[in-house]
């Protein structure tokens, strides 16, 4: 399919359309995700403007939901910033693998492309950027994909804030936030090292829950990352000694 859409990429317009087309299937999950974010934001008491403004300013679902949850549970600003930073660190990886494609563009293009990076936009375009799209049209192709995602997400959030106002608190719609995180957590657990990392993260955060300034969350997260890396190293060493 991607050969069909990308072979005709000969102008900025066709690159933009091909990018939008390749990202279109992901809208099925992005649109409801935007709605959930909107509903969650107003259900904890955010104004409509703040709920939608958050999507435009942050434009990264997981860190938005984390911010909403932490604000409601009375977390400190430092803990919110640190958590959002950790959740969004993965964008540096995307930025690194996209950078050769956009290296000759002016700064405003680079910032716009950077702002528009999302998991689905990166996932759907990186193969074609590496292989098929002409160098001078790559930014149009990428912005086509992330542009359509941006529109779906913002419209989804707006709809969510409208619907969310009418929902009584007994419906516990705030529970959609941890559920969404659980859904992201499960596929991130792929082997013994990542299992260790999640278990240690959860247990340390539970044990340290009384620490001030949400240090429990940060301690849990950092312990989980450290133990995951340690486990990975130990497993690799074991493998190597078996091979010898």
């Amino acid at each position: 399919m991607s050969t069909l859409t990308t072979s005709s990429v000969v102008s900025p317009r066709s690159a933009l359309l091909a990018g939008a087309k390749v990202a279109a299937p992901t809208l099925l999950s992005i649109f409801p995700f935007g709605m959930i974010t909107g509903v969650a934001a107003v259900s904890v008491g955010f104004s409509e403007a703040l709920s939608v403004g958050m999507t435009v300013l942050i434009f990264a679902g997981a860190s938005q939901l984390a911010t909403i949850q932490l604000v409601t549970t009375g977390a400190t600003i430092a803990a919110i910033l640190l958590t959002a930073t950790m959740i969004n660190l993965r964008f540096m990886l995307y930025s690194a693998s996209l950078s050769p494609h956009f290296s000759t563009l002016p700064l405003y293009w680079k910032l716009l492309l950077g702002y528009s990076i999302t998991d689905p936009a990166f996932g759907m375009t990186i193969a074609d950027l590496n292989e098929r799209i002409p160098q001078q049209l790559k930014h149009w192709y990428f912005i086509g994909a992330s542009g359509i995602i941006w529109v779906a997400w913002v419209v989804g959030t707006i709809l969510g804030t409208i619907l969310g106002r009418g929902v009584p608190p007994e419906w516990s719609l705030d529970f959609a936030i941890p559920l969404n995180f659980l859904a992201v957590l499960v596929p991130s657990i792929r082997d013994r090292a990542t299992v260790t990392s999640a278990l240690v993260g959860a247990l340390v955060a539970i044990a340290a829950v009384r620490l001030p300034f949400n240090l429990g969350l940060i301690t849990g997260a950092l312990s989980g990352i450290a133990m995951g890396m340690l486990m990975e190293t130990l497993l690799k060493r074991k493998e190597r000694s078996h091979a010898e």
Partner: peptide
């Protein structure tokens, strides 16, 4: 940093969701 990135989602998400 590159090695640690893989463990960010499981560790941070578990620490964020499970206590509440």
């Amino acid at each position: 940093l590159l090695r640690g990135l893989r463990f960010v989602p499981p560790a941070v998400l578990a620490a964020l969701i499970v206590p509440p």
